[in-house]
Design a protein around this nucleic acid. Structure first.
Lengths: 202, 202, 202, 202
DNA sequence: TATGAATGAGCCTTCATTCAT
DNA sequence: CATGAATGAAGGCTCATTCAT
């Protein structure tokens, strides 16, 4: 029946809404207290939901962490193609646009969570896998869309240059989180300079 | 009395030994479970010591964390001048030696802890202060010893280039930790390339 | 909605029941081991409740102590007006009724707790405040209802005589607690005699 | 040998000194934190002594408590005969001197400890015994030395009157401890008034 | 669907006591 | 005589998770 299909869709959508409601709350809590410091009851309170109800949408606390990691990066994952698929704009301007996307990494609200995720990835295989997936995707996109716009680069240097850009982006997260006085603008400026030098010929 | 002075020295030394014993154990536990995941009783077991006894050497768990942060960086802090004070070797060779020191950052055993420290710095002011101190010292040394060896750099770019180098070193920690398959050698290679390009003229 | 209001009322009532359940258990434990000798886990066991659950009803152990102090005195506080408001019976009979209320103080089950409260008041400001409140109320009632029934008392002696009565009532608690062989009846008899002499003219 | 006997006496005396040193420290600690709140290590620190050394003089913490109870009352026990044995001064003056001794009970520094002892007596048989002993002695002395100075008292009232005096003295301790604003002078004044009325004829 | 009462293991920390030195 | 290092049980409290309603 159509009505059943519709009902199912509506239910599915509502479930998605609830999950987001939990993830929003968890994000706030994890940011302030870390994965291990945040408690389910505090997350529940932040989500305006009962503790028990959360367990209808997530098997346990770890599942929330994993889901949050995925959602956290999906925001970034959407940005990259947005810049990449703007088919072939004039080189320099595109690189500039591409760099601008990285303001995302440097958001002082988001960075601590990203860093927490990286640290957790060191001990939690599932988190490591999520991080690995986005990392591979990030490199692939760079290779496909960023590289063509750079000057000619010696083949044996390509991987190192891309790796350096990845490292820079991770480094931004660290800097923003660990140094409360770091200014996002200055961090981005340093990133821009470094990316330009890494994509330059010679 | 000689004996008293000697006894005191011996005691002091043994205290230092015990503290290190605790810090070694804590380091292993923190690496495996994070600062907040690790428990005092597990740390005690790892240190072959009773829980209560640890508290003779550290006021509380946080004091262990702080002490560990300090000890963790002190290793790095010793390296820098070691390279810097090698009085005036020919430029290129020195830079190479300087870069080689960063194998320290890229040790897959040490990196997870460093990352944990950075994440913790985002919520713990005391940790942030320790991190800030080493950060300032790092920059100051770069400015004093590394910069003179680089080609001429436009004055308004100096800070950005140094900042980029700092970001790269943080990025190495992240990469090594989050990606278990990352090879330290490749990471260092990328770092070397980036540093060279950042110190190059033009 | 009616059901909601009813449910709320029922919940509130059950909460009150639980709190009493905890206080009853705590009272037994405190009596046997003192405020600081009794442990939360033993209180929980005595209350047929898990440790963690107690913390839904009381913020911490001290809150239990305070609540118990309040509840402990509220029993006495109810007695006083009961005697006082019996409007204007013939003097002597009333005084007798009034004295009879003090069997409450002399209950060998209650006295040890009262003494513990007094001792605690010496170090815990919150407890001291609860004790101070009941003390003021006690004096005020004596002044209003007991004094008029006594013979004429020189104005400058009134405070001392009331103070002496207060001291006597405290003393009963001490005697009953510290001397297991003390007979409540004899203690009350002495109290009666002393009160009569303190309220007598001359 | 004489020297041995002397040495033994000297040792005994030094032991006594050490015990007092511990008891002084314990008294301060117990006053501030109660019997259960004070810790051996804090007592040791207050006594300028090592923890382990205390155990040469006292079997365990309870032994310190007991010894302190005994010493605590011995101070009072000495006072009574001091007044009593002043052979037969004129009645009224003696009673006044006798009452004056009770400033001891009302010392705001001593009272909290006395109250703590009374509370502990309710659960610790050994403490109860110490308290009981002093209590019996107190009554006996009153009967022997105070009573003869009073006016003629009906035989069946004697015990009640003495009991009331005992209660008053306990009450003073309670009042002084529990009410930080209570003035010792006023308490003593009330006590004096009550004692006079209890010893008066009729 | 939604609640929050209930659990008990586990957290960090402190304790009385012992014993090698 | 004197120390204080060492223990591990027990302290108060919080937690993730379950389940009756």
């Amino acid at each position: 029946m159509v009505s059943t299909a519709e009902a199912l869709a509506r239910r599915r959508q509502r479930t998605e809404l609830r999950r987001d409601q939990v993830l929003d709350a968890a994000e706030r809590c994890f940011r302030a207290e870390g994965f291990h410091g945040a408690s389910m009851s505090r997350i529940a309170a932040a989500a305006d939901m009962s503790v028990g109800h959360i367990y209808r949408y997530f098997e346990n606390k770890e599942a929330i962490i994993i889901a949050l990691c995925e959602r956290s990066f999906s925001g970034f994952e959407l940005l990259i193609p947005a810049a990449a698929d703007d088919d072939a704009p004039p080189g320099a301007a595109f690189i500039e646009a591409w760099i601008a996307q990285f303001v995302w990494w440097v958001d002082p609200v988001r960075a601590p969570l990203t860093l927490e995720i990286m640290a957790e990835a060191g001990r939690n295989a599932k988190v490591a896998e999520v991080v690995g997936r986005i990392d591979r995707r990030f490199r692939e996109i760079m290779r496909r869309s960023l590289l063509p716009l750079s000057g000619p680069i010696p083949g044996d240097e390509i991987d190192d240059r891309l790796e350096a850009i990845v490292m820079l982006s991770h480094g931004m997260t660290s800097r923003i989180t660990a140094d409360p006085k770091a200014e996002p603008d200055r961090i981005i400026a340093a990133f821009r300079l470094a990316v330009h030098r890494l994509l330059a010929t010679g």
